Each structure stands twice: as structure tokens, then as C-alpha cells.
Amino acid sequence: MKTELTLQDKQFTLLRFPKRSNEILQAWDAGDEYIINHVSEMGLSSGKNILILNDNFGALSCWFAQDHQVTMMSDSFISHKGALKNLQRNQCAKIQFLTCLDDIPQGIDLVLMQIPKSNRLLTWQLSKLRSSLPENCPVIAVNKAKEIHTSTLNLFEKHLGTTTTSLAWKKHRLVFSTPNCQSILAVPAECEWPVDGEDIILSNYANVYSGENLDLGARFMLQHLPVDEELRHIIDLGCGNGILSIKAGQLNPQARITSIDESFMAVASAKKNLERNLGTERNIQVIANNCLDGMKDNSTYLVLCNPPFHQNNTITDHIAWQMFCDAKDALNHSGKLLVVGNRHLEYQIKLSRLFGKEHVTVIAENDKFVILEAIKNNDLTKPNHKDIY
């Protein structure tokens, strides 16, 4: 796995976040290189105000911070942390960090964008760019060529302006757009909808997974959440819009709820939804975090988890593995981790390695999903998470 990005007589050491000793994925891709090479060929004079959208681990931010004033805007807590670590690692100039819910700064000279996986987030970002940028400000976006469809270009044309594309290079393509469309279309910040069969109303910001209806895994999980008057603290890890937190809170009104996600938009949505559906008097905490970083060991009774199996456009199971490891550390003796996932992901094997096969039970399953319960037993020797991943 390469950690040294060398281009145009510059070199940076770039690592993904969190740092793993067995990392096999790079902290940048050919799309980052394509943008860097293209902007270098433009002959951009120094001192420009550059807005970088969706910089995964800070490769673009590190590169351009040396000669320009950089603002990085991302919905990802992990991307923010990764970029900050890489900026510090390479002794780069400080940059401004913003979430996608923040306003776009004035006076931007150039926008660079990694096109997000979610079309809802892309539409939201394009709309914000059109309403904030001067018409002569170039926008250069990049993605894998196979991910740039006619519908993608239509979104740029509709919500931003005149759009063209480059030739493909290392399976990536650039999109060039200008904020000049005549009709500035307002895009709602969030969508609201009731959950079928539940006394719950949800409001989702643009980058929240399963934005306009409940994903099937979460819906299956709702039917199997525990009711236990002894529960004092419940953690919803990877909470999304907070649906599992809300239902668990309704079933266990005595429990304190902690909802955690790495998406700033998910955290904002979950906070709003929890307060709306459980009331502002409930003991609720909603946090943007990398899994359970900083959480005290042996501090909770139940962890709910509907793990993602991708990070941006990369399919990976290391996030789920970290969630399981962190959950085990946070659980009290005999505390429970409840996980829902696609059957083909074989989470039962991973949980058995971590908790012991005899402490992992299938609670429910259907043709697509399985719900697993893992119970912590402090009598077991604690395994080395890195060794058994």
C-alpha cells in the first residue's frame, strides 16, 4: 500500500484515518491525481481561495494548501480527521474546515469536487454552489468514469450551469461546470416523512442514508428491539437518522440514549428526530465520531448497530469490524450488541471471533437480513483486535 504521493515535484505522506497497521487502501486515488495535474497545467497563480468538496482524506487539501487559501467542506467526520492528520503530518498550512450544512464562503476563485456517491448530496451541493458563487468561478469535479452518467451531467446542467467532460484518464473523468444556469432552483435542506406502522416522523438531510424511506435492514431491526426495564444506557452506533434510537427510546423510556454517526448531516437529522419523537426532556446525546473513540470501557448495557459496508465509493468491512470491537469494549459484563446486516456479509463469523461462538445468537432472519446478538463475557481473554481482523 503506497503512502507517498509524488506529483509535479511535490511529495506528501498520506494515510487513511483511522490509521491501521494492516491497511491495504490508499489515502488518495487517480481522481485526486487527475485534478492536481489538470490544475497544474492551468497555470493557476498563487494566493487563490479554493473550495474543496468531499476531499476523502485530505490529498487535495494538502496539495493546494501550500500556495493557496483552502476551505475543505465535507459531511464526513472521518474525512475531517484524516485531512487534519495529513495536513499536520506534512506540515502544511492551516485550512478552514466546514460541514455541508455550513454556508459556502464568499470570494471563492476555484471549486474542486470529488463527486459524492449520493445524488441527493450532489444536488444539494450544486444548488448551494449556484446560489453562492460568481458566474466566472470554475468548478472542476472528478469521479470514476463508470460513475459519471448522463443523469450526473444533467444534474450539473440543471442545478449549476454549462457542463462538459474530459477524456478518461486512469479510469477517471473530469467534469467542468460554470455556475451560470438562469433558473436557480431551490433544493430543500431536508425531507420529512412518517414511518409506516410506527408513531414516528423522520426528517432527513441530504446525505443521510435511505433518505426518503426506511431502509429494509432498519425496518427489520425495529421488530426485534429489546424491552428491558433494567436498561439504563443504549448506544445506537451508526445511527443515521436515529430511527433505531427513537424506537428503542419509546420501548425503554427509562434509558439514556447516545446516538453516534460519522456523518454530520446524520447527526443533525438524528438530533432533530430524537427531540421531536421522544421530547426535549429525555436524556439524549447525539455525537459525530469515529465509531466509539473516547467512549469509556464497560459503560453501557446495549449497543445497536446497522453497519455500513462501504466508505465513500470503497466497499469494505473494516468499519463494521471497528464498530464491533469498540462496542465490545464499551459494553458492561453481560451487555449486548445487537447487529443487523445482509446475510452475505457473514457478520456471525466476525462476532464469534470477537465474543466467542457460544455468546453469539441469531435473533431473527429473513431472505435478505439477519439480526445477531453478541453478549460480552468478561471471563474470556480479551483478543487482540488487530490480530484477528
Rank of each mutant, 00 (worst) to 15 (best):
E230D: 13
Q114L: 06
D32T: 08
V360H: 06
L98T: 04
D109G: 13
I184M: 08
Q254M: 14
N241C: 13
A374L: 06
S132L: 05
L155I: 12
L14Q: 04
T178N: 06
N384D: 13
G279P: 12
A59T: 05
K357D: 15
R173K: 14
E135N: 14
L225T: 06
A270F: 07
N204C: 15
C100K: 14
P105N: 07
K382S: 12
L380G: 05
L98V: 04
H385R: 08
I363D: 09
N37H: 12
V208I: 09
Q91A: 08
D29M: 01
R282M: 13
T280I: 02
V39F: 07
E198S: 13
E373W: 03
K48G: 05
T6A: 14
F77Q: 00
L167P: 01
L331I: 02
R16M: 04
P188R: 00
I235K: 14
A168Y: 09
L110M: 09
D32P: 12
I243L: 14
A65W: 03
M1L: 10
Q88N: 12
M42C: 11
T165H: 13
G217E: 11
K328D: 07
N366Y: 08
I200Q: 02
N136R: 15
E190T: 14
N377Y: 10
Q223G: 08
L133R: 05
E346F: 12
I287Y: 01
N283K: 10
T162L: 13
P105C: 05
P383E: 09
M113W: 03
K336Y: 03
A374N: 08
G197A: 13
V187Y: 02
Y209W: 14
I349P: 02
D261I: 10
V175Y: 04
D102K: 13
K382F: 10
D196P: 10
E373M: 13
N252Y: 06
L53R: 00
I388M: 03
A65G: 05
P253W: 05
E33T: 00
D326K: 08
Q125Y: 10
C305A: 05
Q182N: 13
C305V: 00
I148P: 05
N213R: 14
